[in-house]
């Protein structure tokens, strides 16, 4: 089991509305790593995550999660997906949302209470989600993904719009999950978050232009700042 990568994507191409969104994307994520998917908005990050979840119709290529085809019944038990727009019910309370998602993945009420604490929303547990701020909704959405204790987390920009303290806390949570052997593929367009990942996939216009650790990126480009490193790499590709 240990030698099977958590996520394996081979020669993946996706076409949406006649436009190529992903072309020939290949990478693999070993278990227990936090891999960041970084790049500007519109570069194909969300589409790539949707392909790994099994929600995206693909043109060509192979996508596997824990050795099984993406989206198959057995991978759905081991994947926790957080969409970019917080997908929880605005007309339910935080706790009602979490109890529902818990029952879908055979988790118990204890897991619900645990998830409430993990994302720091205990005080708002009985508030309707529509009365929460955008950042709080994102945390409810994240809590819903924690419930089934999945092996693989696929997180699409989970830290957008959060204040720095919360962002730090969530990255600590991701690190803790990875220490417990969970795998995390997380997208972001904020380059300073790249430094918190074990490895970074830099994307631009539907292609992966770099696949390296943050230190390797700094060394290869001679830039301390990862934002600058991305610029150097993007210009290299364009040239």
């Amino acid at each position: 089991m240990l030698n099977i990568p958590a996520v394996e994507v081979a020669a993946l191409s996706v076409v949406r509305g006649g436009r190529s969104v992903l072309s020939d994307v290949t990478f693999s994520v070993p278990t227990g790593q936090i891999v960041g998917l970084l790049g500007p908005s519109g570069c194909g990050k969300s589409t790539l995550i949707r392909a790994v979840v099994g929600a995206q119709r693909i043109e060509a290529g192979d996508v596997r999660v824990l050795g099984e085809p993406a989206g198959s019944a057995c991978t759905r038990r081991s994947v926790g997906y957080v969409t970019q727009a917080s997908s929880v019910y605005p007309d339910l309370t935080v706790r009602q949302n979490l109890r529902y998602f818990a029952s879908l993945s055979d988790a118990d009420d204890e897991a619900t209470e645990g998830a409430l604490d993990e994302v720091g929303l205990r005080a708002r547990a009985d508030a309707l989600v529509r009365d929460l701020s955008g950042g709080q909704r994102t945390r409810v959405s994240l809590a819903a993904a924690l419930l089934g204790d999945p092996d693989v987390y696929l997180l699409d920009e989970p830290t957008v719009g959060l204040d720095p303290v919360l962002r730090r806390d969530l990255w600590k949570l991701f690190a803790r999950l990875a220490d417990d052997g969970r795998t995390i593929l997380v997208s972001s367009h904020v380059m300073d978050e790249a430094g918190r990942c074990d490895r970074v996939l830099l994307m631009r216009e539907g292609r992966i232009i770099a696949d390296a650790t943050p230190d390797e990126l700094r060394r290869r480009t001679g830039q301390d700042d990862l934002e600058q490193a991305f610029l150097v790499l993007a210009e290299e590709v364009a040239a």
């Binding site: 099994g54 929600a55 019944a73 759905r76 038990r77 969409t83 997908s87 993945s105 055979d106």
Partner: peptide
């Protein structure tokens, strides 16, 4: 709303 997409990625 994207809810259906998310629900269909769970064991439901």
């Amino acid at each position: 709303s994207g809810m259906l997409e998310r629900l269909l990625t769970t064991p439901l």
